Simulated assay, not measured.
Amino acid sequence: MVSSVPPSYRGHRYPVEVVSHCVWLYFRFPLSYREVEELMFQRGVIVSYETIRRWCAKFGQAYANGLRRRHPRPGDKWHLDEMFIKVNGVQKYLWRAVDQDGNVLDILVQNRRDKAAARRFFRRLMKKTGTVPRVVVTDKLRSYRAAHREVMPSVEHRSHKGLNNRTENSHQPTRQREHAMKGFRSAGGAQRFLSAFSGISPHFRPHRHLMSAPDHRAEMTIRFAIWDQITGAVSRPTTD
């Protein structure tokens, strides 16, 4: 078990259970801050959407980091892909890497998808994970091949559109959130949100289609217990 100290809530009027529940709602479901405010009001908790926004900005990344510290060591097969996103009406590119188990290794919002962008993402990945993969799987974007030869020439590189479905599937929740948020307002804001989102959302998305209902409930019970530990919540609000 990886130990981690929950973030400090000193100076906050609301208990940790309320704070962590609001952050969970926002990052787990395609909800706006106002919709989270409404859900909490229905349950008798009066908190403004602006306060919820500040909580998500302050604690979202801390919670995501706590969850990532509990992940096993990254697998040795990395899947990389990029997708376009709209930032204040301008097209940007979201680069994402997952291992063979579907764990998100990192995401990066960049202006381009050329060799320099691919090289930057490769180097960032190796620095963040502290390891070098055995295999890198990408689509046929030429930038990957050029950057691969320069940054990690000893690593096997497989380039094929059909081999990279794992990463492309991991983009789907991001696309849902982008639509719900009607795009992102700034590149920095997109990076901050998606960095926390990619750490929190997958934690509550086990492979449901591979589980029976009892197994899924048991797995979610474990995952909520981990969430309570990393947030410092003693108990969660019920969903009755």
Rank of each mutant, 00 (worst) to 15 (best):
N65F: 13
N65Y: 13
N65P: 12
G66N: 04
L67P: 08
R68M: 12
R68T: 14
R69Q: 15
R69K: 15
H71M: 09
P72Y: 06
P72D: 08
R73L: 14
R73T: 15
P74M: 02
P74L: 05
P74R: 04
D76Y: 12
D76I: 15
K77T: 13
H79V: 10
L80H: 03
L80A: 05
L80T: 09
D81S: 01
E82V: 11
F84V: 14
I85R: 00
I85S: 01
K86E: 07
V87F: 02
G89F: 04
G89E: 05
G89Q: 05
V90P: 07
Q91F: 14
K92N: 09
Y93C: 04
Y93H: 06
W95H: 08
R96A: 07
R96L: 04
R96C: 03
V98W: 02
V98K: 01
Q100M: 15
D101Q: 10
D101E: 12
D101P: 07
G102S: 08
G102K: 09
G102H: 05
D106C: 14
I107G: 04
L108V: 13
L108F: 12
V109S: 02
Q110M: 00
Q110I: 09
N111D: 15
R112W: 10
R112V: 11
R113Q: 11
R113K: 09
D114A: 07
K115S: 09
A116I: 10
A116M: 10
A116L: 11
A118M: 03
R119I: 11
R120K: 14
F121S: 02
F121D: 03
F121I: 12
F122K: 07
R123D: 12
R124P: 05
L125S: 15
M126Q: 02
K127G: 10
K127T: 13
T129S: 10
T129M: 10
G130R: 03
G130L: 01
T131R: 06
P133H: 06
V136S: 03
V136I: 15
V137L: 00
V137S: 01
V137T: 00
V137K: 00
V137W: 00
T138N: 00
D139M: 02
K140G: 13
K140M: 13
K140D: 15
L141P: 07
R142G: 11
R142M: 09
S143N: 08
Y144F: 10
R145M: 06
R145P: 01
H148T: 06
R149A: 15
E150F: 03
V151C: 01
V151A: 00
V151R: 02
M152R: 10
M152A: 13
M152F: 10
S154L: 11
E156H: 04
E156D: 06
R158I: 11
H160A: 12
H160D: 10
H160W: 13
H160M: 10
G162W: 14
G162V: 14
L163W: 00
N165R: 01
N165I: 05
N165D: 06
T167M: 03
T167V: 10
E168R: 02
S170V: 07
Q172K: 11
Q172G: 09
Q172V: 13
P173F: 03
P173L: 01
Q176C: 09
R177D: 04
